[in-house]
Structure formats: C-alpha cells, structure tokens
Amino acid sequence: MLSSDEITDALGFAGDDPRRLSITPMPELEDVRRHAATSIDLRLGRWFLSFKQSQNSSVPLAIMRGARRTLADVEASRTKQHFIPFGDKFVLHPGSFVLGATLEWLRLPATLAGYVTGKSTLGRHGLVIETASGIHPRFAGCLTLELANVGEVPIEILPGMKICQVFFHAVSETKRQELGSMEGYRKPTLPTPKRDITLEKISVPE
C-alpha cells in the first residue's frame, strides 16, 4: 500500500512521466501529508442514476448467446438520470439504492492499482458505498459508486462532499493498452456484461 508520501509523489510527477497518477480536481494534499494518511478522499459528483422500479419485473445480469439486448442497450429504458447542483442534496431513503460518481476524474499509471472503500463516518449513518472496489492500472474516468442506505432514516448526500476513499498499491507493470468497458465516463454507468462461454455451455437444455 502506498504511503502518503508515495501518493503525493505520484501525483506530482510531470504530465509525460509514465509513473504519474492524475486526480482532477487535485485533492487536498496538505491533508494527506498532515495526517500521514494512506488514502485519498474523493468527493461526490453531481450525476446520479436510479432505477425505474415500476417499469421492470427483473433485470438480467448476464447475456446469453442470441440475446437481442445487452444491459447497455436497456440502460436508458430502466434507469433515470439525475443532476443535483452544488449546494443541493439527494435524499437516499432507507433501503434505496442509487449510482453516483466521484467528482474526481482519475487516471492511473500502469504501475498502480487502487481500492475504493466507504468512509466510516458515513457508514455509521447507514450509508454503504459498495463499489466495484478494484481500480485497475491505466483506469481513466470517474468512479461509479453504488450508494445504499441500509439505515433506518433518510440520508442527505450532497455533491461535493467527501464520499469515499481510495487506497493505492504498486503493481508490476502490465502491457494493457486499451481502456476497459467501464472507463472514461463522467456519469455513473452500468457495466456492459461480457459473454460467458462457460455459463452458456452449462445452460444448454438437456
């Protein structure tokens, strides 16, 4: 796990340095140094994606051979986007779930990976940030956050508030060049599932 010094060093490399970690807007590095923290706090962005419960009986989470529509195809038909301005709030009711995104756009070098976790101060109020957790080397984009209220009272979340933290780890450099399917977005998005040949094979009727 990277120390606070190593994180701030990675953020300070020049634009063309392959070791450079980019977070835009830049977090408050003084806080990181002062607290000798091993993570960077990230803030909540303004776009949210909720699910239209009344229009869907169920949602397939895997695609099978011959499927006509992928998850991405139906995203618009079963989700609703929201834009909450700075200074305003999104109320997350008990038991409800919404996708948000970090305000920050991250770009990881090939030598770093990360893990996203919630903040305990928010978790104690019932706000669980169940994210994709792993951030792979060369990731670029805003992180989609899965926000759930598992408490008993409605929670107000505000764009711009500190919402999660990222820990960074050094990794051996990979040869991966292409962006993944969930990278490069400024809004929260649903993943595009990939075909699973094994799943298809075991699902063939006898």
Partner: peptide
C-alpha cells in the same frame, strides 16, 4: 466514435472542475 464521446466527457468534466475551483 468512442474517442469522440470520451472527448465530450473530458471537456464537460473540465468545465465542472473549473466551476468547482472557482467556487
């Protein structure tokens, strides 16, 4: 087309960051 879409996102994120920093 993916690059075109990504460029739009990068531009709009830049606009948002400028607002954040100005505020």
């Amino acid at each position: 087309r993916r690059k075109y879409r990504d460029l739009g996102d990068l531009m709009l994120k830049s606009v948002e960051v400028a607002e954040f920093e100005l505020r």
